[in-house]
Design a protein around this nucleic acid. Structure first.
Length: 898
RNA sequence: GGGCACUUAGCUCAGCGGUAGAGCGCCUCGCUUACACCGAGGAUGCCGGCGGUUCGAAUCCGUCAGUGCCCACCA
């Protein structure tokens, strides 16, 4: 016997282990079955499952389980990401707690610590994925820093370098002063900051008492100014172009140049140019051949090294002690000091409060410093071209489609990708330098050395580039590196390109775009055919979840409390493509009842001896109830399948919900009760056969979204060997003989019962009162129908009997119209005649309003001549039906008397 | 500044050219032998505003307004 209540905790773990042990998740490259491939977006190896994971992996698992049931050779490729900065940060913090600084212990020992940490916490996320029910092909699990993937990374780097698509360049990068590394444009986020706009007066050379005022938000960088720019058309400054200003504090003579970058509307109309600390100024500096002195070091502290010459030359112009004293000061401390000093010198013309966007490191949270350094870059613009074409031509399609615009707009204006990071945890760049500065890029040190020796002589020694690659560099290779590339494996041949990539819109640029680039370049084909973009999970109020807000939902807590299936069903129901999902415990609690409903329906079946019957053949079903259920089930299968094909897990969940709850439980099981309670016979046997058949079908239909409870029921009922539902064939819609007639008949019964219930409720007839149904004006077919369904109608409509009305209607009746028949409920004792008359009149008015609208439509010549014929016909029928019903209501009103 | 999305029942959202839908919530009734995480019944909408296209618009086009987001921008 099934327990009275559904308790997911009692079987979830056992079932998952059963599946995994049976190899049900495994792909088989040797099989003839067509593949279905999803590459997991690799979570951080040391991370733990958050609600966003629950969303993306639930969607993926639904697709995977469904395709597997459809007979596809399914590969859901698992793995984890080394997550360079994030992981290094965690371990650094851990060590700091023990009083250890990574710089003290050195690179090798630090990396030992990171590997140790990975060993300790690396299993968390995969254990949690198992709890979610994710049917990943675990034996194929990969890690972005395992030997194979590292080989792929080196191969790609070397190849792109040979092709000129990876190169080293000295230019401004986004420098994160906290992590002391370069980061890519994508890792920078703008934050609105309340600051000030300082108007500084720079003296004009040779004209004592005359100044040019520049406006800046960053006075501390003035030490590195090498020009002042004004707009060429700006009359205010025309006579100053070509002359020089004297940089205060430093005394450097800097040219006043005309450049269109300067905006006369902004600030004072003149702008200081600091080429080494501002991206725009860098471009201006290049145009005018200006020097590029850096005045901030890796920590974001003032350094005077590169302006020593200036200082030495002109020390008489300022207080040398002040400038010297700035050396080593933090940039924000220096800002205050410089402003104070300039104020003292009366060189501050104005200070305006100013709200502006300041770039911050997305992980460090500190303001980013543009800094002139030597880094490795990838020529993304070139790699982007085929990727753009692939989306344009539909080789890869985004779902929903409008995300293609997001993809295009970024890809068409893509900047060189800075791929080097000044970190230790990651793929060390395979580049070696000789003492003379020559660079050797090779997959191994031996190769690099051999090359160097050939070129520079046998004595040469090489030093490896200490930097590592951006984590997303290895992620970009994920769709083929996990399959064994650069080796030509059977997996690579069969599972590339993948079918679907499922991910959130927040990493289209970071990951999707880069996989598109690398996949196309190295495999000659796109990495996936479809990119399914889902939203982000927010709390019930639509707020972003964050630790600081304290509104973070732990998916494992929800699993603990409501069961995995409830969480999965909730997510599936709420996930509309591309839209954010508002989720809270309440929603999961609501959807949990669906699993309970299924459980209880199954219990009912069990109690009535309904169970697997291999001999049952749907084609032999003759009862209207059986045929109705089978055809309704088929419609649900068709709907669910179409929804999954369109990546609509919400529609899929809703189709299942409506069929199971609305059709199977509310009507079929209720209709089946009289037969099930009655004596054995062919009808009872058939109803039981249909019930077990459709219960099995329901379990299959729901399995992708609620794998645990369906598998448990499958096993408990003995539909197949243990843990075999996962391998069952996905149901196909079938043609059911006599489906139309059965539907007409059942619809009639359902309407009759619903109408009777309605009028009873409205007349406040207590459920304990049962009444006869007197039928007037019914056809012979209707009377025989009523007879056939007598037991059901008596039970569900609280009726004593159904018989034709003979002679005059009794006094005090409530009346309902079902098709051609009018049903009278004699309720002399309880009925309020006036209320009944009012009810009928209201119904008549509603119908008349309806009829008038339709009649007006049909009177419109344009409508009749231009609308589709079937629409016109449909309206004619509607009018006729309404009119007939009005006539019957008139009769009913007459019957009721005064 | 450029772009995208959204605005439908109290709440959360489907629907995207032919009679306005679901879940939850709410109201009334009910322990009818699967289920109170239940059953039966009910109320609730100028489908953001204004124009246009169409025989017909919640659905298509334009426009305005509000909301959210992405990209750019340390004068």
């Amino acid at each position: 016997m099934l327990d009275k209540t559904l308790s997911p905790a009692s079987f979830e773990q056992r079932i998952y282990e059963g599946w995994e042990a049976s190899g049900a998740f495994g792909a088989d490259p040797g099989s003839a079955a067509p593949p279905f491939t999803i590459m997991i977006p690799p979570p951080n190896v040391t991370g733990s499952l958050h609600i966003g994971h629950a969303l993306t992996f639930t969607i993926q698992d639904i697709l995977v389980r469904w395709r597997r049931m459809q007979g596809r050779d399914t590969l859901w490729q698992p793995g984890t990401d080394h997550a360079g900065i994030a992981t290094q940060m965690v371990v650094e913090r851990l060590l700091a707690g023990q009083g250890v600084d990574r710089r003290e212990i050195g690179r090798d020992r630090f990396l030992d610590h990171v590997w140790e940490w990975k060993g300790q916490s690396g299993g968390n996320i995969t254990r949690q994925l198992r709890r979610l029910g994710a049917s990943l092909d675990w034996p194929r699990e990969r890690f972005t820093m395992d030997a194979g993937l590292s080989e792929a990374v080196r191969k790609v780097f070397v190849t792109l370098h040979r092709q000129g698509l990876i190169y080293r360049d000295r230019r401004l990068v986004n420098w994160d002063p906290k992590f002391q590394t370069a980061i890519s444009d994508l890792e920078v986020e703008s934050r609105e900051v309340k600051g000030s706009l300082w108007h500084l007066r720079y003296p004009i050379e040779g004209e004592p008492g005359r100044f040019i005022t520049v406006a800046t938000t960053r006075p501390e960088t003035m030490l590195g100014d090498t020009a002042v720019a004004v707009h060429p058309e700006d009359a205010r400054f025309r006579d100053l172009v070509g002359r020089h200003a004297i940089l205060p504090l430093v005394g450097r003579r800097i040219p006043i140049v005309a450049d269109e970058y300067s905006d006369p509307e902004k600030g004072s109309g003149a702008v200081k140019i600091t080429p080494a600390h501002d991206f725009n100024d860098f471009a201006v500096g290049k145009r005018h051949g200006l020097p590029l002195p850096s005045v901030l070091d890796a920590d974001g502290r003032i350094t005077l090294e590169e302006i020593e010459g200036d200082l030495a030359a002109v020390e008489n112009l300022a207080d040398p002690g002040f400038v010297r004293g700035l050396a080593g000061q933090d940039r924000f401390v220096a800002r205050k000091a410089i402003v104070a000093e300039l104020e003292r010198l009366e060189l501050v013309a104005a200070i305006e409060p100013h709200l502006h966007a300041v770039p911050h490191g997305d992980r460090s949270g500190v303001p980013i410093e543009p800094r002139l350094t030597l880094q490795w870059y990838c020529d993304a613009a070139t790699l982007a071209q085929p990727a753009i074409k692939a989306v344009e031509s539909g080789q890869t399609v985004f779902v929903p489609r409008h995300f293609e615009n997001v993809f295009f707009s970024w890809m068409r204006d893509i900047q060189p990708w800075c791929v080097s990071r000044q970190l230790w945890w990651g793929h060390q760049i395979p580049a070696w330098y000789a003492p003379d500065g020559s660079t050797f890029v090779a997959e191994t040190e031996e190769e690099a050395l051999a090359e160097a020796r050939a070129k520079l002589g046998p004595e040469v020694t090489l030093q490896r580039d200490p930097d590592v690659l951006d984590t997303w560099f290895s992620s970009a290779l994920w769709p083929f590196s996990t399959l064994g590339w650069p080796q030509q494996t059977p997996e690579l041949a069969k599972y590339y390109p993948g079918d679907v990539l499922v991910t959130g819109w927040d990493i289209i640029f970071f990951w999707v775009a880069r996989m598109m680039m690398m996949g196309h370049h190295f495999m000659g084909d796109v990495p996936f055919r479809t990119v399914y973009i889902h939203g982000l999970v927010r709390d019930e109020k639509g707020q972003k979840m964050s630790k600081s807000k304290g509104n973070v939902i732990d998916p494992l807590e929800l699993v603990e409390k409501y069961g995995t299936d409830a969480l999965r069903f909730t997510i599936a129901s709420l996930a509309t493509p591309g839209r954010d999902v508002k989720l809270g415990p309440k929603r999961v609690e609501d959807y949990r009842s669906f699993g309970t409903k299924l459980w209880n329906a199954a219990r009912f079946c069990e109690m009535n001896g309904i169970g697997p019957d291999p001999a049952f053949d749907p084609a032999t079903v003759t009862t209207p109830l059986g045929r109705w259920l089978l055809s309704t089930a088929d419609a649900a299968v068709a709907e669910a399948t179409a929804a999954l094909e369109a990546f609509r897990t919400d529609d899929y969940a809703s189709a299942c919900y409506r069929f199971v709850w609305g059709s199977f439980c509310d009507w079929f099981l209720e209709f089946a009760k009289p037969a099930l309670n009655g004596p054995d016979g062919p009808e009872k046997t058939e109803i039981k056969g249909v019930a077990q058949h459709v219960l099995g079908l329901i379990l299959k239909l729901l399995h992708p979204v609620m794998p645990y409870v369906t598998e448990e029921l499958w096993d408990r009922f003995g539909y197949g060997p243990d843990y075999s539902l996962i391998r069952q064939e996905w149901p196909r819609p079938a043609v059911v003989a006599g489906a139309e007639a059965a539907k007409a008949e059942l619809d009639w019964v359902i309407r009759l019962i619903t109408e009777v219930r309605g009028v009873r409720a409205e007349m406040n007839v207590p459920p304990s009162v049962t009444v006869p149904l007197l039928v007037s004006g019914a056809s012979a077919a209707t009377l025989s129908r009523a007879d056939r369904w007598l037991d059901v109608i008596r039970r569900l409509a609280r009726a004593t009997e159904i018989r034709p009305l003979e002679g005059e209607a009794p006094r005090g009746v409530a009346q309902i119209v079902v098709d051609e028949a009018t049903i009278l409920l004699p309720l002399a004792d309880v009925i309020d005649i006036a209320a009944e008359r009012g009810r009928l009149a209201k119904e008549r008015a509603r119908l008349e309003g309806d009829a008038d609208k339709v009649a007006a439509k049909l009177a419109n010549q344009d409508f009749v001549s231009r609308a589709k014929p079937e629409v016109v016909e449909e309206n004619r029928e509607r009018l006729a039906t309404a009119k007939a019903e009005i006539a019957r209501l008139d009769a009913a009103l007459a019957r009721i008397g005064d």
